[in-house]
C-alpha cells in the first residue's frame, strides 16, 4: 500500500496561503497513492506559472520547464518511455495562451498523459493580468477598462481538438477531486482535467458559484457515467433534453420522474451532448458540470509509435547501421 506521503517531496510548498493549488496538490498525491504507481515510474512535467511549481513538491521524477511547453516536453517523455505515468501540469495562461498550440496538438495526438489545467482565469505569477479564460470585460492590471475579447472555454478547445477525455473539478472539493484524477490516469490517452482554482490574491472568488458545498449542491451537477443527471440541495432537479438543447426540470413536477432524466454517457463517441454539458456555465438556472464528462477509447500516440516500430522490425531484417548501409547503392574497391 502506498500512502500520500510517498509522493511528497521535502520541499517547502511556496504557494500563497489559501491558494487552491494546495488542495489540488493534495488531491493529485492522494490519487497517485490510490492508483499505487511507484513514484519512480511517474514523471510530472510543468510549464511556467504558479501551478507549474507543482513538480517540485512531488517525490517523483519531475521537470519544471519553460512557459507553455510542458505538453510538448511531456509528449517527448511519454513517447521515449511509454511505461512512465506522465502528468502534465499547467495553468490557463501557460496551457492555453503561450502553450495553446501544444495543448491542442497533444490532445489531437492522444498522447497518453494526464493534462491538468489549473484554471484560475488570471496570470498570478506576473501579478494579475487577464488570461485567455477571463470573461469579456474582466478588469485587471493589463485591462483597466475591462477586456474586449472573449475567453476560450477549455472544454470546447479540448473537444475541438478531438479530445478523448475531459473532466472538471473544483479545487476545494477534496472528496470528489482524487477520484477524478484517478479516472484521468486510468484513461488511456490525453486526459484533460480542468481544475477550477481560486487565486486568493488576484482573482478571489472567481469560482464562487461552486466554491462551497452548499453552493455546489445548488449550482453544480456531478456527472457519473450511467447515472441520471440529478442535482439540487434536495436532489430535486434534473436535466432533460429539449429539442437541440437541455432543460432543467423539477422531479415530480409536470409528471417528470427520475426515469425521464438524461442518463450520462461519458463513453459515447458522439460528443455533442457531452459538449453541451461541459459548456453549462451556471447561469439561467443551469448547473456547472463536474466530474468525468467524456471518456472514450482511441489509439494513443505513444502506443502507436511503439507498435509501428514492432511491426516494421518484424518485417525488415536490418538490425543495425552496418547492415543498413549495405542496403544502399554501394561499390567495392579491392
Amino acid at each position: 500500500m502506498r500512502t500520500l506521503a510517498d509522493y511528497k517531496s521535502d520541499q517547502y510548498v511556496r504557494w500563497c496561503p489559501g491558494c487552491g493549488d494546495h488542495a489540488l496538490l493534495n488531491s493529485i498525491q492522494k490519487a497517485m497513492a490510490e492508483l499505487g504507481v511507484a513514484p519512480e515510474n511517474i514523471a510530472v512535467v510543468s510549464g511556467i506559472g504558479c501551478s507549474s511549481r507543482l513538480p517540485y513538491y512531488m517525490n517523483t521524477y519531475g521537470m519544471h520547464t519553460i512557459h507553455g511547453r510542458a505538453a510538448a516536453i511531456a509528449t517527448g517523455v511519454k513517447t521515449a518511455n511509454p511505461k512512465l505515468s506522465v502528468w502534465q501540469i499547467s495553468g490557463d495562461g501557460d496551457g492555453l495562451a503561450i502553450g495553446g498550440n501544444h495543448f491542442i496538438h497533444t490532445v489531437r495526438r492522444n498522447v497518453d498523459m494526464n493534462m491538468i489545467l489549473m484554471n484560475n482565469r488570471i496570470y498570478g505569477l506576473t501579478k494579475g493580468q487577464y488570461s485567455p479564460t477571463s470573461e469579456r470585460g474582466f478588469v485587471s492590471k493589463s485591462s483597466p477598462y475591462g477586456t474586449v475579447e472573449d475567453p476560450f472555454r477549455p472544454a470546447e478547445l479540448t473537444f475541438g481538438a478531438r479530445g478523448t477525455f475531459f473532466a472538471r473539478l473544483v479545487d476545494v472539493d477534496l472528496a470528489n477531486s482524487a477520484p477524478i484524477f484517478e479516472a484521468a490516469a486510468r484513461h488511456k490517452g490525453a486526459s484533460v482535467v480542468e481544475a477550477l482554482t481560486n487565486c486568493v490574491i488576484f482573482n478571489d472568488g472567481t469560482h464562487s458559484l461552486i466554491a462551497t458545498k452548499e453552493a455546489r449542491a445548488e449550482n453544480a451537477i456531478y456527472l457519473e457515467h450511467g447515472k441520471a443527471m440529478i442535482f439540487g440541495k434536495e436532489r430535486e432537479k434534473g436535466l432533460m433534453q429539449e429539442g437541440f438543447g437541455l432543460k432543467v426540470v423539477k422531479i415530480g413536477e409536470n409528471g417528470v420522474t427520475e426515469k425521464d432524466l438524461l442518463i450520462h454517457d461519458a463513453h459515447a463517441q458522439d460528443a455533442t451532448l457531452q459538449l453541451k454539458l461541459a459548456l453549462l456555465d451556471g447561469t439561467s438556472g443551469f448547473p456547472i458540470a463536474l466530474g468525468v464528462i467524456r471518456d472514450v477509447a482511441a489509439p494513443t500516440y505513444d502506443e502507436s509509435v511503439t507498435q509501428q516500430i514492432e511491426e516494421v522490425k518484424a518485417k525488415q531484417s536490418v538490425k543495425n547501421l552496418s547492415e543498413l548501409l549495405m542496403t544502399r547503392d554501394v561499390w567495392e574497391i579491392k
Binding site: A43, A72, I73, T75, V77, T79, N81
Partner: peptide
C-alpha cells in the same frame, strides 16, 4: 521540446 523530454526520459 519533445527531444528535451525524450532526453530526460
Amino acid at each position: 521540446c519533445t527531444a528535451i523530454g525524450a532526453a530526460y526520459a
